[in-house]
Write a protein that binds this DNA or RNA. Structure first.
Lengths: 223, 223
DNA sequence: GTGTCGACACTTCCATACAATTTTGGCAGA
DNA sequence: TCTGCCAAAATTGTATGGAAGTGTCGACAC
């Protein structure tokens, strides 16, 4: 009945799926969730559900109200802007470091990654595109010798992505994002610190442009 | 028998104490710890111990080996340098932001904080000094309108502090650190971005000077 | 209509039992 | 002495029962 032996524990599986459902807004911000409910939803008992909630509370994707329950964290404009700022700070430092030294092996993976993203952009596969985006930024950090930077950014990015899911899904944005990735890589290849940092800033700061509009559109999802 | 009603859950208490013991090296890097053992050590059953391990694994202070157990994370020079770099990046951005706008209320708390640290430095109370140091950096982030920056730095700082515990405890360093704090605040008061950032960088980069020596002295605690 | 009290439902939190897996240690045999 | 194997011990991962905390809702007094 269970498949623990197949390498992943139930608790991790539940955590991963729950995180996915929260990130895609399948579970909307503000939704109440109980251990029991989570367990049933993903086919386990309460215990793995509880552990998933504890884990996600650490990344602040759910808020645990002691003795009462848990809710999917609402989107906070203030926190979102802070997360964006901190992410920008870190990733700018990463590309700067990348200009000084970039691991050869990571450079080839970056190219693979860009190609994959181009395909995803053309076919409009947003899920694949997002995976590619994560991989791009992750590989960039690894190439710069700062893999830990990605693990820090990853948590921040989760919150930002959740807001992005609300944003209108204009099809042309995907290819635009790919173009920005290319610009960043090109600057790194030229070892042009200034251009690389500028390109990264431009890439990251676009996401927050229509935040006020989103809040007006979905007031119940915000704090 | 239990004291759950008195505001803090057993699991949180165990997590807090375990974190403390790991940070002060009472539990040395590399030590194996089982859920059972943790529970008994802090007076609970396995369950809170397990939850504490899961929580600390998120901050990478313990490493969970699936189906096998957990060990206190060894100190990794590479990770330490990355953590220091990322911390420096974030905190530099924080003081820069602080130069543009600093909340009045936080400014007065900073002064309190500096006074408390002076006292701790004189009496040589390292535990109190560390608490004051955390509070200083936390208040700085809050004053700059970036409280989230502290929550990110906090996790990075844990690893750095653990290495600092190994370092020789020369008594004069404490007052030196306080002086550096004063320099940072003075630069912020003058709204002198460059000086503030330089002061913060100097403050943070000293910690890693004798890292090679430490590794030679305690090879078993490192990766 | 307003406020208070108590039963009740719901949930977490902790303890514990059980299942699955890994490690350990011993022992037989070459 | 070394190797291979098996059983016991230790440990995690999961399920579940029960205690305790919290909020809801209706009855009832005023």
């Amino acid at each position: 009945m269970n498949a623990r032996s197949l390498s992943e524990s139930m608790a991790h599986k539940v955590e991963r799926q729950l995180r996915g459902d929260i990130l895609t807004l399948a579970l909307p911000p503000g939704a109440r969730i109980s251990e029991q409910e989570i367990g049933e939803r993903y086919g386990s008992s309460r215990q793995p559900g509880r552990e998933a909630l504890i884990a996600l509370a650490k990344s602040r994707l759910v808020e645990i109200l002691p003795q009462r329950g848990a809710v999917v964290a609402r989107i906070s404009v203030a926190k979102l802007m802070q997360a964006a700022f901190i992410r920008e700070t870190i990733e700018t430092a990463v590309v700067k470091a990348a200009c000084n030294a970039f691991h050869f092996h990571a450079r080839t993976r970056i190219s693979d990654c860009l190609r994959a993203q181009e395909e995803a952009a053309e076919s409009g596969d947003r899920a694949a595109f997002r995976r590619g985006d994560d991989l791009f930024h992750k590989t960039l950090a690894e190439g710069a010798g700062l893999p830990m930077a990605w693990s820090v950014v990853e948590d921040l990015k989760a919150h930002i992505d959740r807001a992005c899911c609300l944003s209108l899904h204009a099809p042309h944005t995907l290819s635009k994002l790919v173009a920005e990735h290319h610009a960043i890589v090109a600057a790194i290849d030229r070892r042009d610190e200034g251009a690389a940092m500028t390109a990264m800033n431009a890439h990251l700061s676009e996401l927050l442009h229509d935040l006020p509009k989103l809040e007006a559109q979905h007031p119940d999802l915000f704090e």
